[in-house]
Design a protein around this nucleic acid. Structure first.
Lengths: 210, 210
DNA sequence: GACGCTATCAAACGGCCGTTAGGTAGTCAA
DNA sequence: TTGACTACCTAACGGCCGTTTGATAGCGTC
């Protein structure tokens, strides 16, 4: 009867490290395609081709195209949250504007410096299949809540005074940051730092000469 | 031989007014679909169905799906330019901030109040077929040039002082305005006027309490 | 050496796509 | 009455889609 104890030796299959590696390569290539040509043009056959396998083989690693897409969107949010958390702990002792600058820089870093996942999220979420959107919205809400509480914090410290609601200005700020994926080139004339500074200065002091 | 002169009587077919009416209905319905479900999901059969005809009949009015799409994008720019021109002539005698407010309000009006054409342009241009994008970019550049010269005007009047370049802040402002199609509900809590005011105030004075 | 498991494949499925061909009423001028 | 033209139709075309089926190697374990 002692033999039954042996089951604990292999409770689940050993999962060779290759499995996870292929999964990652699929996600990387798929994210690149989703970002450059969009959801509809990114076919399962194209993703597989970029990885070096056939379309049917992809279904050994993922259940469907939408499962790949959803994984990428979720990873995109994770990258943003990780960047935010680092900015939060780094900027704790700084004044309000500098805290904001670091968080804006962190968000832009997630968009341009930590793989295409976050950029896919920003560019492709709007026309994602409804079933996918339903899954993503609650997770995305978590990230937005981090920003809401950050801005509320700065607002109650009397370092910031928004004319109407903080929520409205958060949306405006998000629009300013996220729309940069339409035109910003990380290898172009402006650095990501200077973009972060421009957005921060504009958000904080405005463009008026007064 | 005088008969040949009769040709001038009907140089082109009479074009009954119905033709133009159907064309407009196709564009209206197609724009609504492009805006709500995106380019790929908007099929020729769906557009035709919304109009009340069959897919093949649509090809009597347009040469291709992309011709419909391109017409909508161009009309979207026209709507923005018309709004801009009205704001320009209306705000001539006002001070810098009020001029800006009226132009921001006009741009938002084009997005939310004058049919779905401009909104389609903003939401669907990024992943439009490359052949379509090539045609649109020069036209869109015309609208952006209007804004660039407006902001340069305000800047040289010393009423505005941007830290870096005007071009950069125009892009940030466009991002703030255009991203509102992701979340703004014209029938919701905020009016379009209050949104325009929030964006204007934020752009002009920032959120700092100093 | 049989077995189970992983990772891949070729081939095919039904379905929808944009588009075209060809036909048919209706209108209106000669 | 004929003929040209408009606006629509049914039917079909070739093509690509996401996905499934069933087979085939390789590989470590009993």
């Amino acid at each position: 009867m002692a033999r039954t104890l042996d089951i604990r030796k292999t409770p689940i299959s050993p999962q060779p490290p290759n499995q996870e590696a292929v999964r990652t390569r699929i996600l990387d290539q798929a994210a690149h395609l989703f970002l450059t040509i969009g959801y509809a043009e990114t076919t399962v056959r194209r993703i597989a081709g970029a990885v070096g396998i056939k379309a049917a083989s992809l279904y050994h690693h993922f259940g469907s195209k939408d499962e790949v897409f959803e994984s990428i969107l979720i990873r995109g949010i994770e990258v943003m949250v990780e960047s935010f958390d680092i900015a939060k702990s780094t900027s704790k002792s700084l004044d309000a504007k500098e805290q904001l600058r670091l968080h804006i820089r962190a968000h832009l870093g997630a968009l341009f410096e930590h793989g295409p996942y976050t950029a896919v999220h920003v560019s492709s979420f709007h026309f994602a299949p409804p079933i996918v959107k339903e899954q993503i919205v609650p997770i995305r809400d978590g990230y937005e809540a981090l920003w809401t509480s950050l801005l509320n914090e700065l607002n109650t410290k009397d370092q910031m005074s928004v004319p109407t609601s903080v929520a409205l200005h958060r949306l405006i700020l998000f629009g300013a940051m996220n729309s940069s994926i339409e035109w910003f080139d990380p290898n172009g004339d402006y650095s990501l730092d200077s973009l972060a500074n421009a957005i921060t200065d504009q958000f904080w002091e405005g463009v008026s000469s007064k």
